[in-house]
Design a protein around this nucleic acid. Structure first.
Lengths: 125, 125
DNA sequence: GCAGCTGTACGAGTTGAGTCGAACTTAGCA
DNA sequence: TGCTAAGTTCGACTCAACTCGTACAGCTGC
């Protein structure tokens, strides 16, 4: 792997026409797979994340510090990445922060009713 | 482990008042956990099993030979047990066969809409 | 009895996920 | 210029799940 300036143009986060930064890589709506999404949601911590986003976020995105999860940063990176790569959440880079929101429209289109189950979930019971 | 007749009364499969054999151990409706059920359904083979039960079975249960799955028997035992222990299916012993059906009422009560997603799933796409 | 069938139990090998520490990158700011 | 904070990347460890072969158990019918 190259060491010096060869590190490519570093893919600067160029604002989209909408003014928002480009989303990080994610599957398209057509690429969403039920088994993958269910696998991403089969973890209590990730269910907590998605449910909190669904119930408590207003219209804007949230950085992973907002969740108040008591885990090391590297663990959180792992789980947020799992959610994004499964297509459950979308992440955009805002300066230092990487903010997430649930892909409600895509998930409702492909898997209607699924997000309602997550919203109704409770960690213990 | 005892070898001879000590093998307990062997839990004979006593017919219930309904005339059906007793179901194998399973979580009660209240014990169903969303993350566990989603985990059980995050495997393509198990999705195939549940979907086939939902779409193609009429009112009676099916033994695991009915599915025509090209896997070793010990693998199938593993997956049917995973589904039963997650509370997705109920299994009863009929002589030699162990027949399964989906716990539609329990799942619809606890996780409405979930089974519709499974029924709409297709293995590739 | 005994053979044949369905399915379980057990154990081993392998893979993948979760967890985390440590070092690194980057943006913003004094 | 250099500090600080957010988050990533990497590697290591642990543990659970998947896969499967083999051996065993129980029912059924000859």
């Amino acid at each position: 792997m190259p060491t010096s300036a060869a590190a490519a143009p570093a893919v600067k986060v160029l604002p989209e026409p909408s003014g928002l930064p480009e989303p990080l890589p994610e599957p398209s709506r057509d690429e969403l797979r039920l088994e993958t999404v269910l696998g991403a949601l089969s973890d209590p911590l990730r269910l907590t994340i998605v449910r909190k986003l669904l119930l408590e976020s207003e219209d804007y995105d949230h950085s992973c510090g907002w969740f108040g999860l008591d885990r090391p940063k590297s663990s959180l990176t792992h789980h947020f990445k799992a959610l994004r790569e499964a297509g459950v959440t979308r992440q955009r880079q805002y300066g230092l922060e990487r903010r997430s929101h649930v892909r409600v429209e895509d998930l409702d289109a492909r898997f209607p009713g699924l997000l309602a189950l997550v919203a109704a979930w409770s960690p213990q019971g």
